[in-house]
Design a protein around this nucleic acid. Structure first.
Lengths: 244, 244
DNA sequence: TGACAAATTTGGCGCTTGGTCAATAATTGA
DNA sequence: TCAATTATTGACCAAGCGCCAAATTTGTCA
């Protein structure tokens, strides 16, 4: 994995720097503020060199989305290592999901951006596949837990619903909620005060609705959350819940 | 409400035409293909005249989002008139929601677009408020049914969760799912074959999870769906389910 | 009706920016 | 040392947003 030649290392380093330069721009100043001249200037190379790394602006945005998605994947993998009954393990994923969303709320803005057809179309199929792989990896990890639950008879899926489709529901809810929290400033005015808490409640009740044992009232999942936070995500949790 | 002078009528008519021209462009060719020169050309007026109607491109996109949101509001209002027990009425909203998503899958693309901060920022606060009003209207309609359910003791909300926050969950799920269905071509490869059916299942189970009586197994909601489709959305349903 | 004022429309222009490419510089290795 | 290869450069082009002074149309009143 170590890239041998100095050239190659320098090249990869510069690629990282481009992304480091682009991220705060797109996060704090938006899509329109991100332009190639500016990146080149901050990079202290010419525009042509930037174009050697990324064939277009859109590709940079996709690369940024892939970067945070990898963080997410890594957090999901750590969460999946939590041992316990199937639903406890699912709870661990829930914790990972919320911590990720709180750590990188901008991820959902970038992801929304990258999905815009006219942006998506301009990106290379190689990088598209990379994003898809990350998504598939997260989804597979979670659907694995669902399979496990079904196998252990902790839950019976309704006929016709696959584990992947169940995960699609959890994914939709979190994606939708965190995207809106990141971009819809009207939520508080509509009486949605604490979106994160609401999502947590919805996930629990949805799993209850599918009859995933032990149900919420049969088990203290707050304890599980605490355990996951201290054992797996101590760093992240303290970063989020003791800001300063 | 009728606009008296011929001038005013012509002006409003032209505004509609601009949107009619813009919609298929943005839906089928995407954001980048939509440009003011082209609109002006198709409109057979000059660019300056288009700018008399809309101060910028982004404003047109927001106007398109508001247009379909109004359709959605109208469908929600019709659904809300369905009479029956609270959960049956909520089911009617679910039908409206799905029919809307199937009729206007592009709406979610436009909405995603409009939420991009660098696009949102360029729009006028007047139109932003208009979108917010539409959203608030839908949300209030639905949360009204939740209030009703709580009042009729069909459901007890967990402490700390408001009816609006419950609706936020339903909204997140549908928004997330329908957005992904419209933009993520990788879903089938991940085993998500029928997203619409999955969403329907998730909503039912989530409401079950919150204990909203009568629960899914206590009542035949398929009959309710059929009734809503034939009594309220006959036109729309036949358009969707008998394509030809 | 015709002259003048107001309102509307026009389209050329400035400017920004994405992306290209021939020229130039740096590196390599024989 | 020097030719070949590779990397970098930045002037340049085209596209498109938005502006605005000029032109045109519409409206008004003597």
């Amino acid at each position: 994995m170590v890239n041998s030649t100095r050239k190659e290392r320098e090249y990869l380093y510069r690629e990282q720097r481009i992304l480091e330069i682009a991220r705060p721009v797109i996060v704090h100043e938006g899509y329109h503020a991100l332009n190639m001249n500016r990146i080149a200037e901050q990079l202290e190379y010419s525009k042509g060199t930037v174009y050697n790394h990324f064939p277009c602006k859109e590709e940079i945005i996709l690369a940024l989305a892939i970067q945070t998605l990898e963080q997410r994947t890594e957090m999901f993998q750590r969460a999946a290592r939590f041992s316990g009954r199937s639903r406890e393990r699912m709870q661990a994923i829930g914790v990972a999901c919320e911590l990720f969303a709180r750590m990188f709320p901008e991820h959902f803005v970038v992801e929304q951006l990258v999905r815009i057809p006219s942006i998506w179309e301009k990106t290379s199929s190689t990088r598209q596949q990379q994003l898809y792989r990350g998504e598939t990896c997260c989804l597979t990890l979670v659907s694995g837990i669902v399979h496990e639950a079904v196998g252990a008879r902790d839950m019976t899926l309704p006929t016709g619903l696959t584990p992947e489709e169940l995960v699609f529901g959890l994914w939709s809810m979190t994606f939708g909620a965190y995207s809106m929290l990141a971009t819809n400033s009207n939520l508080p005015a509509m009486g949605i005060a604490n979106g994160y808490d609401a999502v947590r409640s919805h996930l629990r009740h949805m799993l209850d609705g599918y009859g995933w044992r032990p149900l919420d009232h049969e088990h203290d999942y707050d304890v599980v959350v605490q355990k996951v936070m201290s054992e797996i995500f101590h760093e992240e949790a303290s970063q989020i819940f003791q800001p300063g």
